[in-house]
Amino acid sequence: MDVLKAYLDSLFAAWPRSDQVLALKREMLDTMEDKYEELKRDGKSEHEAIGIVISEFGSIDELMDELGIVPSAASGNIPVLTEETVQGYETVVRRSSRLQALGWLLVLFGVAAMVLIAAWNENGVLGGISENTGYLLAVIAAFVLGVPAIGLFIASGSGKEKYRVLGEDFELSAGTRANVERRKETFRPVRVRSIVTAACLGTVSPAAVLVAAVRGESQTPYGAAVMLALLGIVIFLFVYSGGIEAGYQKLLQLGEYTPEKKEENRVIGRIAAVVWPLALIVFLVSGFGYERWDVNWLVFPVTAVLFGAIGGVYGMRHKPKQKA
């Protein structure tokens, strides 16, 4: 009986889906169906039968009191986010992910442009200007692309203050939660495509350096510029799709956003803020200073592996503490 099932579903929607609750719900549905069938056999119409069954259902609160269960949303002083708040937050997250992703794209394109112009300069492609002017041009190119990036990073933070509550304890009503889950599901194909594209580009990007190196030592910086530009697209895709995914996870309090994980992420975030710029500096110095474009790109995969290891060790060391 679909009507009875829908009725029970709506009544149970606000309650946690524990095994006990689900078993009880199933059993109650059986009983209600038995009753419905018997009323029908006694000559009642479908409508009458359903009316009687529902009128004799009773109060779901009575049952949950007995089970000692509190509703999943509405447990006292934890704020419950409204649908408008949630949608507002999703809009802000989309916007800020886009701005951040664009910012990173510009930064990497800026560095790529700098490497490219410096290489032209060294190979004498730039024509009649002095070598110093050439290097100056390279730095200017990096700034022209890099400075707007800073603006984008700053702008990406605005509008988020309103949603500080998401960093603390909050709850969603069952209906809102279902809506968020649906929207997260709609976004999934975009995210999967982004990750696959980014991973392919990222894996292929060092090939640019290798190909360039094979064509001659003077060509290597061109390869480095191409690789940096490709990495810019990789980071764009990761930051954009990852930011939106993180927004959904934050709303649903999944994965990285369970209370225990929040602390771990803060620490790892601080390490990342130091490690990655350091890697970029090593890359640029070894490239411009020592002309080692052929091997210095390795600093990025090495940093990624080391960084993953640091995160793993931190996670392992802090697990027992959480349990206590």
Binding site: T31, D34, K35, F57, G58, S59, E62, L63, E66
Partner: peptide, 28 residues
């Protein structure tokens, strides 16, 4: 469940109908 609830109704000569939630609270 249903048999118990039906018999309670019958024995009480339809004067008492145990609600579903009351029945399952009691079982629990």
């Amino acid at each position: 469940g249903y048999e118990i609830s039906k018999n309670i109704r019958r024995l009480s000569q339809e004067k008492y109908v145990m609600k579903e939630t009351t029945l399952y609270s009691a079982f629990t």
